[in-house]
Design a protein around this nucleic acid. Structure first.
Lengths: 196, 196
DNA sequence: CCACTAACGCGAAGTCCCTCGCGTTAGTGG
DNA sequence: CCACTAACGCGAGGGACTTCGCGTTAGTGG
């Protein structure tokens, strides 16, 4: 969904077009509310033809998922300090910040539109799937050090889900205290002292 | 959101129009995928003029939130057997069923579009707020019987949030086992044997 | 360096979305 | 029963969205 083409010809032009589009979207988001972001405007700003945008991304939401998803991935690397408890808290705090910011909301909206809009059940956009893989790797590293870690699903249900749902329903306190509380709850529920 | 008018003139015609629209949407949803649901089609089927639909609901998503939200409220009354643990499990199971069904997905999509689409931060649609009030009442009843109950926010974070987020990210097992597991987790967190 | 073809540029055309002003209808309060 | 006005009906109109076929460009593999 992010960039739906299986990279059959990932060479120079294709990558250049994508970069142009990303730059244009970045600029446009800085100048106007996200609801004003149309394919036509992106085409105009980026110099990429309108038909090309439809062919590659299908819709403005598809472009948004691609752009914002990549931005989130880029600026929040998964931590690896050797202290699982601290890493987890950092991970949770970054996730909360990403989500509560304006582009987090944007990303969520676009993701929902793309995922629930089409009947074909397809996978997560690559940027998101990659993020989950990183978390799994973090858990694996800790497990390799002998730490008794929760499952990825536990982390998803106890940490991520409340953040996302709170955002949707507008009932989130979402301060730094909130994420600390979630992490603490994860430890208590999964029964780990979380040292390691 | 749901029906945005503060009921300044809730009398016969207004209610009649709303019923007509709801009936039309029900019919249309049975005949075609939700993505095909346009304001124009609703107007045609219901006999209500297109301009009226835009005035009252603003968009097709707004109508969807109204219609589906009411349907969910109507068919899943909050349980009250006097056994808190059982009530909570029933509540969770019903919520899970509502969400996993096609109209649950629909509702979620529409809710996101309506809530995150406009910049004005407004409240939850009445149907949803009402649902939360019912849950709070359920907790209050149990508390009045002397049961040590979790907070509404706990229920939201531990029961509702994983269901919603799982739906969005497509990572939900969401069987009856899953909800039982969530309820069990809630009990463990609040440290109750959940008898009452 | 050449042939192949994926991906893009182009522009027209159709469709749908949404708004607006004005006239009409029918709840509401007295 | 009457005056008032919220809410609806109406239709035109502009604007936005999306698709399509065809020609062109430029990675890719040999």
């Amino acid at each position: 969904m992010s960039d739906p083409r299986p990279a059959r010809r990932p060479g120079g032009r294709t990558a250049r077009i994508r970069a142009d589009v990303h730059r244009a979207v970045d600029e446009l988001l800085r100048e106007q509310p996200a609801t004003e972001l149309t394919i036509a405007r992106i085409a105009e700003r980026s110099g990429v033809h309108l038909g090309t945008l439809y062919r590659r991304w299908g819709s403005a939401d598809g472009i948004l998922v691609d752009v914002v998803g990549e931005r989130l991935t880029a600026r929040s690397p998964v931590p690896d300090t050797g202290d699982f408890s601290r890493d987890m808290e950092t991970y949770a705090r970054e996730a909360a910040e990403d989500l509560s910011g304006p582009e987090g909301i944007l990303f969520l909206r676009a993701l929902v539109a793309v995922r629930l809009g089409n009947d074909t059940e397809d996978d997560l956009p690559p940027t998101l799937a990659h993020r989950f893989d990183e978390m799994q790797a973090m858990l694996d590293r800790a497990a390799a050090r002998g730490v008794d870690v929760p499952s990825a699903q536990d982390v998803f249900e106890i940490i991520i889900a409340p953040l996302v749902a709170g955002l949707l329903f507008g009932t989130e306190p979402s301060g730094p205290d909130a994420t600390a509380r979630l992490v603490d709850r994860l430890h208590r529920l999964t029964g780990h002292r979380a040292v390691g």
